[in-house]
Nucleic acid binder design. Sequence first.
DNA 1: TGTAGGGCTTCCCATCATGGGAAGGTCAAG
DNA 2: CTTGACCTTCCCATGATGGGAAGCCCTACA
Lengths: 148, 148
Amino acid sequence: MNIGMNIGQAASASGVSAKMIRYYEEIGLIRPSARTANNYRIYSEDEVHVLRFIKRARSLGFSLEETERLLALWQDRERESAAVKAVATSHIADLERRIGEMQTMVKTLKHLAHCCSGNARPDCPILEDLAGNGAEGADPSFAHTRDG
Amino acid sequence: MNIGMNIGQAASASGVSAKMIRYYEEIGLIRPSARTANNYRIYSEDEVHVLRFIKRARSLGFSLEETERLLALWQDRERESAAVKAVATSHIADLERRIGEMQTMVKTLKHLAHCCSGNARPDCPILEDLAGNGAEGADPSFAHTRDG
DNA sequence: TGTAGGGCTTCCCATCATGGGAAGGTCAAG
DNA sequence: CTTGACCTTCCCATGATGGGAAGCCCTACA
């Protein structure tokens, strides 16, 4: 029925946990819902629609702040699509930057792992790299010689 | 020289901030340093070497927990390089998984942004997708059929 | 000798988004 | 009338880092 759902029903209808619905309300991302006489939150279909919007935005990696902006644009019939596109484009750039950083890590790690025999002996180019390229890393007996 | 550095000197020598050095000590990643009479921390070259190891591991994306394991292996002359390689390999897999997730987001977002005219009018396929109205055929990653 | 400054110490708070759990109210079914 | 499944608020934890306050210590300089 579209009359009203309690928070648990709204959660399963939207995919947003009850915990998160309360949190979104607390930080002002969504407006406080109506309450029943016994102080239970109740949600309309429209409010669940908003929650699904948020869920989808989050699943595309938008931050809550970006999601808030997108939500405002969605609800603004006078919006310019350019504003929406700008949010998306900047998010794409951010994702690509982070992907690039991680790919650099993967490339280095794969090289090191490839060079590591991965057997029962202690010699390990991965540790040598972490220790600072050197042969020094092979035998770190100097470490933790303080105290006892 | 190599007699002793205070925390600020150790920080600039290792690239790890003083704040983080104290934190690593607090969580047990590094051992508490010696102190001077006036309670200042002092670091040896060896301890700075450990800090650089941590710095390098972090820059390759290892978590502090993984870094702790790598550090222990580094300092264990009886280690098997297979153990080190296992940590690295699992980290590579994690990175690749996250890269994949982000690439999926980028792909969807680029498609939506491409379809968005980005002008002064309100029509916007990006918002339509987020609202769930749009062409769900475009990317049905909607299916969060993960409940139970 | 006094003071300014910079470094050090500990302690608390904030981030970002989410979950866990306690203590207590409320409702529906048995 | 009990049991259990909801709901409520409140506090705490995560991971890794930074900000900043209050206070101690040392050095340099007038």
